[in-house]
Amino acid sequence: MKTTAAAPFKFCTRLTLTEVTGRKAFNITELLEGIKAADDAVIYHHTHRFIKQSHHLVPEGANDFAYWVANTVQADKLGEELTSIDIVRYNSLADIRGAFVEVLERHLAENPGPGRTVATGREFHFMRAIRFSLPTECSAVDYESFIDCLRNVSASSLYLHVFEARLRPPYGVDDFSHWFRTNFNDETVGREISRLDPYSYTLESLRRRIIRIIERRLPEVKNA
């Protein structure tokens, strides 16, 4: 088994700048219209920002749309449905948008008539994320240096490689699994990392889990 990677894993990080579009929604119908009109940068902001911001608090699978519907509009059932949309299952932001549109259209078809309109000040604001990707100083060529980097990179970097990686080729695959598979042909580590449910952990506990998976594999790799 190879012990040094052909291509080093260069850890990057993701930063965003928030643009306020000025578009607002006061009820579910306006939320649906806004999501339909939203470009990828809007969908990214409201689905991915939430994961990153909340991940030091508790494992939280929600998104801004679900949070607003559940906590402000107080449409409990719809809020639950929107919360349960598994955004890491989708391979593009357009698909994620489609999933939200589908749930909201179904809700409005099943609940015709005027829904609740929230008071001024409690409306939903559509925002866009301008994304910046930055290199970090961390670069790994083998299992040990990968663990070392994992211990030191920021939560933003972890988030970029675990969550956002699934939105670009190879679609639906996190960067870590991909690297271990393509550089070391290590299906064991690849499979174990890709099977981790990102919603079940905070970013910090996800970091610890991934480190543990690779550490467990280390003696086998050395003896191979």
């Binding site: 930063l15 700048l17 301008i130 994304r131 930055l134 290199p135």
Partner: peptide
């Protein structure tokens, strides 16, 4: 979210965004 370093970072990101032709995705 609310320390001076994040505030400075946001100003610098905005300056970069304007300087680099207002692209939604910027690789540094």
């Amino acid at each position: 979210n609310f320390l001076l370093t994040r505030h400075l970072r946001d100003y610098l990101l905005l300056a970069l965004y304007l300087e680099s032709g207002k692209q939604d995705f910027i690789h540094l």
